[in-house]
Amino acid sequence: MTREIEKKLRDAVRELLEKGTIDRIVGYEAGSLKFSTTPLITSNKADVDRLVINPFTHSNLSVFLRDLCGKVGIVAKGCDARSIISLIQDRQIARKDVFVIGAPCGGVIDLAKVEKLTGLDRDEVDDIVWQGEKAAITFAGSTQKFSAKEVLADSCLGCDPSDFKECDMLIGEIEPIVGGKELGQDRIREMEAMAPAQRWEFWKKEFSRCIRCYGCRQVCPACFCDRCFVEETEPRWISPLPKWQDNLIFQVVRMMHVAGRCTNCGECERICPANIPLGSLTKKMEEIVDELFQYRAGTDKDAPPLMAAYQPDELEDLMR
C-alpha cells in the first residue's frame, strides 16, 4: 500500500522535474535511525527514488520554503499545506513559486507515546505498522495492538483534513483521521480544570527545564522573523539566560506571534529536548483564535493575516 503511494509520488516528482514544472523538490527520505525520516531537498532526478511516505514523516517541511529559490515542489501533509497557505498570506512566499504535492496522512506516530507504551526507547522497538485501525507494535519478542489515539501525536487527534486546500496535486485519498475533535482537546480541558495558581506552578516547573536551544522556533514555519525579539538588545526584552521566567515569556510571546499562523502541526512539542508540553499551548491558541475570530490558520490564501485584519465592532466585551 505504502509502496504504491511512494511509487506514485516518485513518478510524479520525476516527471515534474523532467518537465521543468519544478526546479527542486522538498520531501522526506528514510532517516538514519529506526522510525525516522529526514528532509530530502534536491534538484537531482536521481534522488527522487529516495522519497518516502510513511507514518513517521514528522517534519513540517514548509519551514524550508523561504530559503529556497526557484519553483519548489513540496510534499505536504494537511497541517504542512496549511502552513504553506499561511506563508502565502504573510507574503513570505509567492503562490506561483510553490507546487504543493498533497500527501494526506492518517496522522503521524508519536514515538514518545510509543516509548511510554512499551517502556522502551525507540531504537529498542522492533516494528510499528498499521493493521486497520490499530497500530501493531512489536517489541520484546511479541506484538501488541494499540488504538490510534494511543499512538498518534496529540496534534493529529484534533486534525480536520477536510480543509486540505491549494494542492496542485494529490497523492492518495483524503480520509478522516481516527480520533475526532474532542480527543485533541482533552489536555486543554485537563489543564483548565486546575486552579490558575496551579497552572502557573505547572508552567513554572515545565519552563525551568528549558535550555533555550530555540528548537521550537527554528522548526516552526510560522516563526519567520529575520530577527527574533529575543535577540534584540536595545532594549533587551528578555534575558538570554535560561531562567524559567524568561523561558516562559519567550514561549508565550512566541505563541502570540504565531497566533493565526500556527497550524498546530505539533513539531515544537515533538522536538523539544526538554519535553515541555508545548502542544498544550499551540492547541489552546488555536482554540482561542477559533473562539474569538472563527478563524482557522492556513485555510484561505487570499484572506489577510489574522492580526492584520479587524472588524470595527468585535471583542468589546473583553475591554474594560
Binding site: M191, E192, M194, P196, A197, Q198, R199, W200, E201, F202, W203, L248, V252, M255, M256, A259, L281, K284, M285, I288, V289, E291, L292, F293, L306, M307, A308, A309, Y310, Q311, P312, E314, L315, L318, M319
Partner: peptide, 18 residues
C-alpha cells in the same frame, strides 16, 4: 483595532497560563 485583537488573545492566553 489591532490592539484589540492582539491584546484579546494576550488576555485569554495568559489566563490559560494561570
Amino acid at each position: 483595532y489591532r490592539t484589540r485583537r492582539r491584546l484579546s488573545i494576550t488576555m485569554k492566553f495568559m489566563e490559560y497560563m494561570g
